[in-house]
């Protein structure tokens, strides 16, 4: 246990004594998480609602596509963005590689599948009479969407929290696009990776502990949500999905 213990003993003071590097990384991480989640929600919620409520041709295929996007490796998203942002690339004029903006964009794109698919699933989990009644009573599209959003709010919040978790902990895409520049565009995850590669293990452990605490708080929130509101839950699940068809 000696090394683990030594590293922990060295790591904890770094957290408590306000190491400025650590605090700047925490600040940037929260900023990335907030910006990426807001973008993912603003774009993803309308898409998720359309997918969940819409009755148009190809809806099923779009939903399969959206579910599949959850499995896209972040490193590939990072590679694609990097090539698009390279000076010779299609959006090279924007000069985004190794900037903070590129990090925001990458994490927002990675968070988006969660807001889209989980919002759609939450809306589809509503009792079907509720929405058909509203339709019969002459509710317009916007009214219907507002109703669905309100009724499925716990699932929608869970979707946003899942997006937040992704923005906090994903590392591969931002390491490519952001370049993992020390003290500039590092999140906790990419900083932990960087410090470990530099063989500064105490710093790496301190950063990992902070990230772990943030994720535990987030998952605590998700667990509370699951058990509140009459037992609504969010999780991967394999089971007969009657309302899929």
């Amino acid at each position: 246990m000696t090394l683990l213990w030594d590293e922990l003993k060295a790591a904890v003071p770094l957290i408590f004594h306000g190491n400025p590097y650590l605090f700047s990384v925490i600040g940037f991480t929260l900023q990335v998480a907030a910006i990426a989640t807001v973008i993912a929600a603003v774009i993803g919620l309308p898409l998720g609602l359309t997918l969940g409520l819409g009755r148009f041709r190809g809806r099923r295929w779009l939903q399969i596509l959206a579910n599949a996007s959850l499995g896209l490796p972040p490193v590939l998203v990072g590679l694609f963005l990097f090539l698009v942002f390279v000076p010779q690339g299609p959006l090279g004029g924007w000069q985004l590689n190794t900037t903070r903006r590129a990090v925001y964009i990458a994490q927002a794109i990675l968070a988006m599948p969660y807001t889209v698919t989980l919002t759609a699933a939450a809306v589809q989990g509503l009792p079907s009479e509720l929405l058909s009644q509203a339709r019969l009573l002459g509710a317009g599209r916007l009214q219907l969407a507002a109703l669905a959003l309100r009724e499925a709010r716990i699932g929608v919040i869970a979707a946003v929290l899942a997006a937040l978790g992704t923005a906090l902990s994903e590392v591969a895409a931002i390491a490519i696009v952001g370049g993992n520049v020390y003290g500039y565009d590092q999140t906790l995850a990419s900083a932990a990776l960087y410090e470990a590669n530099q063989a500064r293990y105490a710093d790496s452990v301190a950063i990992a502990i902070v990230l772990l605490v943030l994720i535990v708080i987030l998952m605590g929130g998700v667990s509370l949500l699951q058990h509140s509101g009459g037992g609504v839950r969010m999780r991967f699940r394999a089971g007969p999905a009657a309302e899929l068809g």
Binding site: N67, L70, Y114, T117, L118, A121, A122, G125, A152, I154, G155, A158, A159, A162, V232, R233, M234, R235, F236, R237, A238, G239, P240, A241, E243, L244
Partner: peptide, 8 residues
């Protein structure tokens, strides 16, 4: 049979 994140 479905496997996916789901809220219900």
């Amino acid at each position: 049979l479905g496997l996916r994140f789901r809220t219900g």
